[in-house]
């Protein structure tokens, strides 16, 4: 069983605090990191992978401190903006990562084959990175995450900017990630995480609000989610937020009890209630 432990993690840029006293532990599974823009998701992930230095033993994975020089060799990390060497082919790029991670020569080709297979990049194997589409490039990024079967995988917004089909492809890849690993992927798009994650960590303003299943998070919007006709919206005299508008009906969430049809809450609505502290 792998374990990621964070104890009292604080991070400031200048005088501006980004992460405020975070503490949590995660074991094997796929975790989504959800939060609005500026919540500190990327900063948290960079602290977890050791890009930002942290005090000793604040971030540990299987008791290895994130500041150790070889720490990043044991994890798979897909940054928010992933680029590869434009002049390298997919295979060459993956081989490069294998060497960088200190793998044995005898294992490299197998690892590359496995990674290409899992990410369906076989047809692009010999194509140069400069010629890959955005989706293929992102798959390459995920492939390099999987090299060496790392027990800790971190992906920062893996589907952002991709078309729907590619998003689904990538989500499919992610759901096939090894179970015996801690995988964290961040997104500000709820749909990305709903079906692929075991648990979702909700973050806002540098703090962890909750770490729970999608169903439990949705329950936060229980009795706060309503469907009302659009024309009645202007008559509402309370705090509310429009979640979805469809035909002549809108779904809203409100912290006040309304005289309207209560709807079954979704993850998105539960997340919004958590963010708004309703």
């Amino acid at each position: 069983m792998n374990q990621l432990a964070i104890k009292n993690l604080n991070k400031k840029f200048g005088r501006h605090p980004i992460l405020k006293n975070l503490s949590f532990e995660l074991e094997d599974g796929i975790y989504g990191l959800l939060g609005p823009n500026g919540a500190g998701k990327t900063t948290l992930l960079k602290c977890l992978v050791g890009i930002y230095p942290t005090p000793t033993n604040t971030v540990t994975f299987n008791e290895m401190d994130a500041n150790k020089k070889t720490y990043r060799n044991t994890i798979g990390y897909l940054p928010q903006h992933y680029h590869a060497f434009q002049e390298f082919s997919v295979e060459e790029m993956l081989l490069f990562y294998c060497k960088a991670k200190g793998m044995k020569k005898t294992d490299m080709l197998n690892e590359v084959d496995n990674a290409i297979d899992k990410t369906n990049l076989e047809t692009e194997r010999h194509k140069k990175a400069a010629k890959l589409s955005g989706g293929m490039l992102r798959r390459l990024g995920i492939a390099q995450c999987l090299l060496g079967n790392p027990p800790f995988i971190v992906m920062d917004e893996p589907t952002v900017g991709l078309d729907v089909e590619e998003q689904i492809n990538i989500q499919t890849v992610i759901t096939n990630f090894p179970k015996a690993s801690v995988t964290i992927m961040s997104s500000h798009i709820v749909a990305d995480l709903e079906h692929s994650c075991d648990k979702i960590i909700v973050m806002n303003e540098g703090r962890i609000i909750t770490c729970d299943t999608a169903e439990n998070i949705a329950c936060h919007a229980q009795n706060k989610t309503y469907e009302i006709p659009q024309q009645e919206l202007s008559h509402l005299k309370c705090d509310y937020m429009v979640v979805k508008a469809k035909d002549k009906t809108v779904r809203i969430i409100s912290k006040n009890k309304l005289d309207a049809d209560v709807a079954a809450p979704t993850l998105e609505e539960g997340y919004l209630c958590l963010i708004k502290d309703w």
């Binding site: 890009i51 020089k69 940054p79 903006h81 680029h83």
Partner: peptide
């Protein structure tokens, strides 16, 4: 610049980079 652009510093360990 090509190393910088590829974000190698973020993806592999300091020593390898």
């Amino acid at each position: 610049f090509s190393i910088q652009q590829a974000g190698i510093d973020e993806q592999i360990s300091f020593r390898s980079s």
